[in-house]
Amino acid sequence: MPNLKNPPLKNRERDNRIHIFESIRWYFLRNIVQTKNARKVVLSDGVSITKPYSFGLFYLLILIGLSYYFVDLIVISYFEITPFELFVKRIPNFTNIVSKMITDFNLPYLPRIIQPLIDTIQMAILGTFIGAAFALPVAFLASQNLVKSKVLTNVIKLILSFIRTIPTLVYAAILAFAFGYGTTIGVIATAIFTFGILSKMLYEVIETLDLGAFIAVESTGATKTKAFIASIIPQIMGTFVSLTLYSFEINIRASAILGYVGAGGIGILLDDHMTWREYGHLGVILALLLVVVFIIENISRYIRKKMS
């Protein structure tokens, strides 16, 4: 039965009502920028067309206003203290580091970073696995089409957003108090991060699933559990594996950072060489990292192709 009390509004009417921002936007458009006559075009065959409103200018003004405010906050206040010549004079500091990474490339150093690199990879694998193992059931619980209680799904989604907002580094720093420094906290921090993003990506996929298969299996007399295993799990498994591999790639990149709070792996070395200005060593590590990421990306692309 149609809802007579609150008839659905057309887009524009609804926009007009939502809040002050919308009203300002519409006032701006109708009265300042585009009157109806200005938007009217008469074609050669006499048909007249009214162009739709364009909000581009309005948003552009907001963007420019915000940028101006932020530039004033950061860039202009910086150059009030630091003379511009000094800034220009120090630009070679940056380019020198880059060129030294290439010219001082210290290849004999390579064998000594293999072990930290393996630590980093193991850390990422284990963290991704643990995070993914927890993410799958939680993602099902957070999906609105599978769980009827809207309160439950929303509470879980809120907790997940909360987990995601706290930076991984902070988890690692706090965990270090309880577990001591080393790869263990790296694994746990990676697991928490993976859990956060993976369950979000998963429930977004699950919510778009076609439940027709589930109902069809149920109608053959299967119990809910059996129908779930037969219809939902096969639909989601491929996506689950490929999303897990995707977050594994992210984790490999991120684990270079985790070393900063003492979570082991290759990050500590990066920090040390930067402090001691050993850019040749840094170049070796970065090159190796690039190669490893490239290989892992290709393996995971291959597996994803096999899965789908």
């Binding site: 800034f87 120090r90 500091n93 990050g267």
Partner: peptide, 17 residues
């Protein structure tokens, strides 16, 4: 994409302070 963000940060700090 692979360049660690902290290293980049430290490099820019040598320019801007």
């Amino acid at each position: 994409r692979t360049f660690p963000i902290f290293i980049l940060g430290l490099m820019f700090i040598r320019v801007t302070g």
